[in-house]
């Protein structure tokens, strides 16, 4: 710790400290406000009943189910591709032109705004592949979201794989394991918490996403019957209820549920990261 500066520097110092606390305050204010306004409206009925009047009244049951289906489908498609990409980049190739292109593409993809994904998903999955995806559907939405969360999963998984000590790979290979056996039995299990973190962060992004889904997931309030039916997620529902029905109570209540999910996701991710660090540092200490 530094000693407190004097004179003009004191103002700068105070501004720095103020900013730090301001960030914390902003978070508390936003979350607290949504919570206070919405929690009174959250009830068992709200969670288990179907919406009426476009969501202005009634509950959000189909929306919760739709969100779960959507997230599950997205993870099912995105996780194998993302983790596979990370394995390829980290285990199967050396840095060169091809990895440069792949990394560049992945980074670029991470920065593309969601509405562009929406336009793309609409043109490609909804319209062009419409015969297969049935237009606006869980499948179209999940495929679009897959494109969006892919960079998150790839990056985080790659970090996780990098944290696996080299000594473990060598030990396995020296025992006569093939490359894939080594990856499958040693590297992936050891890096699992980090990989899960990537997937969970991806889930977070998919749950928070709205713009791209407005153009691909449809927005139906009916309980989805299959991946070829449309649905809406909590974020979409919040937006539609707030903007189309003007019932802010229902919007805030949906916001509360969203915030709770986001909190859960964050805590889980942090817990897993800690676990990864602990595990691999105990293995690495003896290097």
């Amino acid at each position: 710790m530094m000693t407190r500066p004097k004179g003009k520097e004191r103002f700068i110092y105070l501004f720095l400290v103020f900013s730090g606390y301001a960030t914390l305050t902003i978070l508390c204010v936003i979350m607290g406000y949504i919570f206070l306004k919405g929690i009174g409206h959250v009830s068992l009925d709200f969670l288990t009943q179907s919406p009426r009047k476009m969501g202005a009244e009634g509950g959000i049951f189909p929306v919760i189910v739709g969100t779960l289906y959507f997230v599950a489908l997205t993870v099912l498609i995105a996780a194998p591709i993302g983790v596979g990409a990370a394995i390829y980049l980290n285990e199967y190739t050396r840095e060169g032109t091809i990895t440069k292109i792949i990394r560049f593409g992945t980074e670029l993809l991470a920065g593309i705004p969601s509405i562009i994904f929406g336009l793309f998903g609409y043109a490609f999955f909804v319209v062009l592949l419409g015969d297969f995806t049935q237009g606006w559907s869980l499948l179209s939405g999940a495929l679009t979201a897959t494109c969006m969360v892919l960079p998150t999963i790839v990056r985080t998984s790659e970090e996780a794989l990098k944290s696996v000590p080299r000594a473990l790979r060598e030990a396995s290979l020296a025992l006569g394991a093939t490359k894939w056996q080594t990856i499958y039995k040693i590297v992936l299990p050891t890096g699992l918490p980090g990989i899960l973190t990537g997937i969970i962060l991806g889930i977070g992004r998919a749950i928070g996403e709205t713009a791209a889904l407005l153009l691909t997931l449809g927005g139906s309030l009916l309980l989805p019957q299959s991946i070829f039916h449309g649905t809406r997620t909590l974020s979409m529902h919040l937006y539609m209820v707030a903007m189309e029905t003007g019932n802010m109570d229902a919007a805030f209540a949906t916001g509360v549920i969203l915030i709770i999910i986001v909190l859960l996701i964050n805590f889980t991710a942090n817990y897993l990261i800690k676990k990864l660090i602990n595990r691999n540092s105990t293995a690495a200490i003896r290097r």
Partner: peptide
Amino acid sequence: ALRKKVGMVFQSPNPFP
């Protein structure tokens, strides 16, 4: 097969977790 026949023990112990 070669590595199965020629085993190796490393400088620092590296048991799997």
